[in-house]
Structure formats: structure tokens, C-alpha cells
Amino acid sequence: MADPTPVLDDLRAESEELDRLVAELSPDQWSLATPAPRWTVAHQIAHLAWTDHAALLAVTDAEAFGKEVEKALAAPDRFVDEGAEEGAARPPDRILADWRTGREALQEALRAAPAGVRFPWYGPPMAAASMASARLMETWAHAQDVADALGAVRTPTDRLRHVARIGVRARDYAFGVRGLTPPAEEFRVELLAPSGELWTYGPEDAPQRVGGPALDFCLLVTRRAHRADLAVTAEGEDAGRWLDVAQAFAGPPGEGRPPQGGGPSREGRPAEGDVR
């Protein structure tokens, strides 16, 4: 059984990095539009607080969480946006305080969870390590939206391994959510980590292959950048199709980001000034 401690430590570090980005913002900056349509910086942080609260309910009160699932099923196209709208209507200091309190409560609950227990979620039930990985992935992705709104450049870290792993494991889901039949064979995925380490997934001799910088792959599977602007490559028709539909999160794929036309930069990052 996976020990959740390392990913919980990484989740805390990822959250603290975003916290430092928003902690000193002015009210006007909290109102800045992000690349996500109709979402401001306030929406982004409010959404993280809202989802942390839902995760805490899943871990500590399955009955209460079940009622949240019923709400989601009753309004699948509005549920997420309505939660973000409600949260973003509060003053920025309240949004920030609620996010800090909620994410710490979730940390404590996941660290105290008995080994092997799986918790209900909007998709399949998840163990503590998987839930922490999912929270890290979402925190990293929303932090990218905030950074883009502020014109800030983030330094990638090897915490991206959690995002990349979810993206790889979600391959078949990405096809299925679009009504497509997933490929039958495994792919080989080779990603260059920020540290210079090579992260590999799948059979070494697989004919269908994907490769590139881990940062670019993570931007792709969180749909924070268009494939045309990233240095992620594919060998094989099915691998190429995957890069067009890849996503690491559950639910509809959303609008995604339009191509910016600049192509990938030399460092494998989206070119300077891109809006994702």
C-alpha cells in the first residue's frame, strides 16, 4: 500500500508556493481574469478551497459527501462553476483564510487515515495517496492559471511527477470521456524531469511512444496549453491521437487553450507571453 506521506508533503509544498503567489495581492489583482473563461484569481482559489472541503467530507463524513455527489448529479454542467462563484463572492482575505484552514484540515485527515482505506469521490473511490495526488494536480493547474493572470513565471519542480503519473494513468479515460475507444496496447512515455531525471512509463519496446519535457506534458494533460505550443512528441498514430485528447482530471474536457502560434520555447516551456 502506498505511503501517502511523500505526496502529502509535496501537496503542502505546492499549496504553500501558490499561497506565496496570492498572499500579498491587492483586491484589484484578486479580480484579474485568468485564462479559464469567466474565472478570476478569486475564483481559482475559491475553487481549490471548495474542492478541499469536498475531499475532507469524503474522508471524514461519507454521508455528507454523498449529498454533495447528489448535487453534482443534479446539475453536472453548473455544479463546479456555482461552487466557485459562491466562494469568489467573498472578500479576498476570507477566501484565503478558508483555503488555508481547509487544506490543513484535509492534510491532517489524510495523514490520520487508516492504511488501505479508500474514500468515496465523484469518480472511483480513492486511497489517501491517490486523493493527495489529485489535490496536488489540481492545485498545480490552478496555480498556473493564477500565474498567467499575474504575468508570473513559476519554476517547475519534480513535484510534477504526481501530475505526470495521473496524466499517464488517465489515458484510457481521456479517450472514453470523448466517446472514443482507447487503444488496446500500452504506450511508452519518457519525460525529462526538471531535475534532469528521466521518468519512464510503459514497456520500453512499445511502438507507440510519447516524449518531451515533463513540464510540457503536465501543461498538456491539465489542458493549460495547446499541443502546438509544447515540445511533446508522439510516435505512432494512436499516440498522436492521445496528445490531442489527453487530460488528467475527471469530467468534461472543457474548452482548453487555443494555440498561440509561437511553438515551444527552447526550454520546452510555452513561449513567453502565451496565455493558456
Rank of each mutant, 00 (worst) to 15 (best):
V7C: 05
D10G: 06
R12Y: 09
E16M: 06
E24Y: 04
L25K: 13
L25P: 12
L25N: 13
W30Q: 09
L32D: 13
R38W: 05
W39A: 08
D52W: 01
A58G: 04
V59L: 07
T60V: 11
T60E: 11
E63Y: 07
A64L: 04
A64D: 15
F65D: 11
K67L: 12
E68I: 10
A72S: 12
A75L: 10
D77E: 15
D77R: 12
V80S: 13
G83A: 07
G87L: 05
G87F: 02
A88Y: 04
A89V: 12
R90Y: 04
I95D: 08
A97K: 00
G102F: 03
R103S: 06
E104G: 01
L106Y: 04
Q107Y: 08
E108M: 09
A109T: 02
A115Q: 14
P120G: 10
P124G: 05
A127M: 09
M131T: 08
M137Q: 11
M137V: 13
M137R: 11
E138M: 06
T139F: 02
H142I: 15
Q144A: 03
V146W: 00
L150Y: 02
R154H: 02
R154P: 00
P156S: 07
V168I: 14
G176P: 05
G179S: 12
T181A: 15
P183R: 01
E185H: 09
L191K: 01
L192N: 00
L192E: 15
E197V: 14
P203F: 09
P203S: 10
E204I: 03
G211N: 10
G211D: 12
P213L: 05
D216W: 07
F217N: 00
L219Q: 08
V221A: 00
R223Q: 05
A228K: 14
T233V: 11
T233Q: 15
A234V: 09
G236S: 06
A239T: 14
G240V: 13
V245C: 02
V245R: 03
R257C: 15
E267S: 09
G268K: 03
D274N: 14
V275D: 11
R276M: 13
